[in-house]
Design a protein around this nucleic acid. Structure first.
Lengths: 408, 408
DNA sequence: CAACTTTCGTTAAATATTTAAAAAGTTTTA
DNA sequence: TAAAACTTTTTAAATATTTAACGAAAGTTG
């Protein structure tokens, strides 16, 4: 049994239809993908069925070549349970992470293992769709190189910054063309494509693999060049009517403040994002207010002012420290808003800027104390993401799988 | 068959246990309560079962005396379907709405019909629990007067302002005592009690009976003496970790602003609530800036400055108009925050202050244009609640029923 | 108004799923 | 080291639910 491609003939593959109609089997596949090998009993936690029924479904999946037995698990004094897992080559998913200055591509097998090395492409994201061709070509090369059978690729999940509506496949901010971006990708690849905003894919990664796992109400802040927010509510990723929920970076914070690229003035992003740090660093250098920033600049020219400022701050550069303190202050005020609105159980800070945590966390805490109701603010748990650099691409690959398997 | 009371002997009533274990039957009862008489097919929309199965459940419910046949519905060319509805006296629910200055009590039957007249009690809510005794006594009188069989009363739903945790039964703001308020009520009544924040019960009322019906992502603003927010997300009422989500009125809006009763300065509530209107009206009268406000005051001394200001504004009083315009401005800015965070499909304005709509809606719209991303702000639908004065009590009664029927 | 169409309710057969009991492995304990 | 205890898997019987066919009741049409 194989999965279908988006443009495959209808009915040419009976097995796909079969799986399509079997919600429970899809759920099993999904959980084995997300959480690895499991016993019958473990699966019972996810699919609410009796032991005999689950076993019969597993046997069918085994016969279909999607699942295999993987020896036995441990027991606390009794017969040892069989372990079941997806077969590595049951299917593949391509994950693409598009950032402002670079794009990376990974391929995951049915066990959610990365089967490719780190493939990074240096491309600057723009308004138009010019960067799509190089990404497609690059990805096709990776597929060919790794000899992934095309018919086993379920499709492609792509995360990107901007206001992304994954239903229509439109990004209102970047890569705008006469057709929805997802459609452009889909045509070039000839495969199913799902696009999603990067803050949301990272929140989803936290929900499935990270600190938000099995939690109900969590906010995941994505501190990058912009400021994103992924909202997890009742254990699900919340997207709002058009998928634009979480425009946290554009909350108006300063009256008559700096002009934001969104057209408004004084957005949180103008004073507390990676871009804001870069701007303030340049200002400091221009006016000679920093001891170390200028020197560091020479070492590293490629768009990582954030890291430069953090390094300078670590070395004791007062101006850099004040930049980060200021950023923390405003972020904290923004978080105070969110805490009062959502009463979340946990807030996760992730993204490029979390390198600066030691400098921004204290002012964040302080702002929360100042601006937040103590019943809410004192109880709040704030943690730094532990997922690392692969969060986004893992998140969007998993999101793609669920997108494919959850539709009825 | 009857429903059990909270302090009834275990196992004295087999039928309750039976219904307890039958999720689907409870769902039928719930939907017949919420939406009135229905056909077999209608019910199929809610309980996902085949026709024969639903009929067999309905027959059981009929035999148990909970459901009855109510003639036939219409058909578009074919045999006319049977209509089924809850029997009026299958059970009763008591709804209590506690406001700052008055409390009302209603009893609803199993058809969600109010079986009592309007019973209003003039009591001012305080920090302690002193107002509980009069409410209990009053309610007991109503029960006796209407001769509602006590064993058929499922329990009591109470809505009230403040930070309410319905899980623990604690209100952090009002009616504080050494025991959770809900517990105090429960003991005095000897019945099951659910308390909930008023903004949330009204949002729930909108979701079940009002403009939010069958909608997914809706914000319901409750404009009263305070400013509340009920959040509907993925078609469900969202409450956050402790039930304190929606503390919209205490978002910090003005630096070094007016001191709020929450202890912070410059909360939205200090400049845009009913209380703020009352304060500004008094200021205007003291400084002689208003033509009509002073006169109106004499007519009506009992805590409705809001209505006074609206009346004066209608008569052309410039100061009153400016008060309301200012309130609208700040509310609009607050809504802009919410719109960017939630990307809701609809915002509903309700509560006492919505009498002032003609004066506050235009500045609200304007603020949204100023402070909100146009992709989000231009598309947003803002409506005024159509539920009327019974919204809260209806909402909390329905919420109580679902609370009782949805637990496993 | 009879014939046709549509929708609904009933019935019985087919299918799906669970429960309960038995069998098969493992660990623990005596 | 064997028996006891425990847990999982298998099996078969019991139960639950759906499907599909049919008949009943109503609207529609010529």
């Amino acid at each position: 049994m194989t999965f279908s491609q988006v443009n495959q003939d209808e009915g040419s593959d009976m097995n796909v239809v079969e799986l399509k109609n079997n919600f429970q089997k899809r759920k099993i596949i999904k959980n084995l993908f997300l959480y690895g090998a499991m016993t019958n009993t473990d699966l019972g936690q996810f699919v609410k069925l009796s032991t005999p029924k689950i076993i019969s479904l597993l046997n069918e999946l085994k016969a279909e070549g999607l699942v295999e037995e993987l020896g036995q698990g441990n027991s606390s004094g009794g017969r040892r349970p069989n372990l079941y897992g997806n077969k590595e080559d049951a299917f593949y998913i391509i994950g693409i992470s598009i950032n402002i200055y670079k794009t990376s591509v990974s391929i995951f097998n049915a066990k959610n293992q990365k089967v490719t090395d780190d493939h990074i492409l240096t491309l600057t994201i723009s308004h138009g769709t010019t960067i799509i061709d190089p990404i497609v070509e690059f990805t096709e090369n990776v597929i060919r190189e790794k000899q992934i059978p095309r018919e086993k690729i379920l499709g492609i999940g792509i995360e990107m910054p901007g206001m992304v509506d994954s239903e229509t496949g439109i990004n209102k901010t970047y890569m705008v063309s006469d057709q929805p971006v997802a459609e452009v990708f889909r045509k070039k690849f000839g495969m199913e494509v799902l696009i999603e905003n990067d803050a949301k894919t990272r929140a989803f990664a936290e929900l499935r693999f990270g600190l938000a796992h099995a939690r109900q109400n969590v906010l995941a802040i994505h501190l990058d060049w912009g400021i994103g927010l992924g909202i997890i509510v009742n254990g699900k990723l919340y997207k709002g009517r058009d998928g634009f929920a979480g425009e946290f970076g554009h909350l108006p914070m300063v009256d008559n403040g700096i002009l934001c690229k969104c057209g408004k003035q004084g957005c949180l992003e103008t004073i507390a994002s990676g871009t804001a740090i870069a701007r303030m660093a340049k200002e400091g250098m221009a006016t000679g207010r920093s001891t170390f920033l200028g020197e560091l600049k020479d070492h590293d020219q490629e768009n990582n002012e954030i890291r430069q400022v953090v390094q300078a701050a670590t070395m004791g550069d007062q101006y850099s420290i004040s930049i980060l303190a200021n950023v923390g202050h405003w972020l904290g005020k923004g978080l105070a808003y969110l805490i009062q609105i959502f009463n979340p159980e946990l807030i996760i800070l992730g993204g490029r800027m979390s390198e600066a945590n030691q400098f921004i966390l204290p002012p964040i805490q302080q702002s929360i104390q100042i601006f937040c109701n103590p019943e809410l603010g004192n109880e709040i748990e704030i943690k730094v993401s532990e997922l690392g650099s692969q969060a986004g691409i893992q998140g969007v690959a998993a999101l793609f799988l669920e997108h494919v398997l959850d539709r009825n």
